[in-house]
Design a protein around this nucleic acid. Sequence first.
DNA 1: CACTCTTACATGTCCTAACAAGTGTCCGCA
DNA 2: TGCGGACACTTGTTAGGACATGTAAGAGTG
Lengths: 250, 250
Amino acid sequence: MTLHEAIAESVREQIRRGELSVGDALPSEAEFCDRWKASRAPVRQALATLRSEGVITGGRGKPPVVCASSLGQPFDTLLSYSAWVHSIGRTPGQRTLELALRPADEVASANLHVDAGAPVVHVLRLRYLDGEPAMLERSMYVERVGRLLFDFDCDSGSQWTYLQSRGVRFATASHVIDAVAADPVDARNLGVPEGAPLLRQRRTTRDPDGDVLEFHDDRYLPRAVSFTLNNTIDSRSALARATPGSALDL
Amino acid sequence: MTLHEAIAESVREQIRRGELSVGDALPSEAEFCDRWKASRAPVRQALATLRSEGVITGGRGKPPVVCASSLGQPFDTLLSYSAWVHSIGRTPGQRTLELALRPADEVASANLHVDAGAPVVHVLRLRYLDGEPAMLERSMYVERVGRLLFDFDCDSGSQWTYLQSRGVRFATASHVIDAVAADPVDARNLGVPEGAPLLRQRRTTRDPDGDVLEFHDDRYLPRAVSFTLNNTIDSRSALARATPGSALDL
DNA sequence: CACTCTTACATGTCCTAACAAGTGTCCGCA
DNA sequence: TGCGGACACTTGTTAGGACATGTAAGAGTG
């Protein structure tokens, strides 16, 4: 772990442990330098990282101040449901309803960027939060990745962790968040009436070369899960509004 | 404008103009230093900014690469509907349905952090996108801010711009995004059946001292508006999933 | 021709140093 | 007591350099 990472992590740790709460001021940069026997560069890099995460604010002349109690989520917890649930101290669960190798239909070929008819792995999974259904996950994988899933007990642990252990390298993801009415499949599995509002997160995950690895259509029960964002005037947010015409692609 | 801001903006400008598209490599840091007659510090700061916005990626040994065509939105376009619509080259519209000064009920006092019964300004506005209804906005303001709205023609321009011109200083905002069923008011104004799924964005905006200025409950037609996010493995995202138990507060 | 190894180049990390600019305190003066 | 200004302290910005580490291309070898 590099020095600036260690500094940033120590601050996050202090926030997690409650030693720093919202509104508290952090030590000055000079103080950090003394404590860590470091120059300003790594200290400032650590503070910049925390700032971009929306954890602290502060301006010229004023010491940085903790401005968010909920820490931003690292890349993996936004992509892995299991990792996320664990990270907030709850109990995940899951039941795989379908695992199939099928020729790509129109939707699959468009989202995975493969030829129509190419083999594609479809997965339908129901995800639980503390034993209650919370999300229905429709995912599709390019054949290269999806075939690994047939060697995996999908109900046992984290698919994400498993795929990484088999050499799949996830690098970037694009998310589109909107609302949708529960279709018959959603309704039956999530235990809501047909047409009930669901929070939908669609995402495309790619490897370092930009090739698509998977596409998800996750539908959450709004009473169980929502998305949050903390925003500061001097930081452009990664989250953006969009209209359907806009490109969803990388 | 400082040097690193100018460098970052010039890259964003090149992306907007199409001189740089997805997958293109940026010049090396040394090249930037030469062109701008600058040291590595401002160049690296500019690249770090772009990276945190999800615009570029790239690792050690490789030059940075453009990885998102849709630029992240600055603070104001996430808060001002008018500013956002303008920024994507469409035509905003709005009709104010209600503007009222009322004693704070339970919801208002909880979200604005004022005493129950304290005066609060409520606004109900229908927002259009290219002439079509796209969002219903329920907002409430603390009295200090809201009273300024009575001197303002709410259908004329940007409320956000107006309030800033009157000295209101917005600094931070917390957003919670989920889905909700259209209630009778939503349904009538947005032209959808009651119970139809809507994308809801609730937000609390504060001034630099952390005092709450306004609270919004914006409900979007999913077919008109969604939220997007680009995510990279080496950047914690400001967006986070949450369960209702989690704090929505700063 | 295929493979490995060297090497040039890129970025990541960290340092010292200096000046600019905003904030808050404290002291003197009216 | 109240106010303004000097001053100490803070963070922001930039310069210039050093070394570590990952990438990719080219040289050399089998």
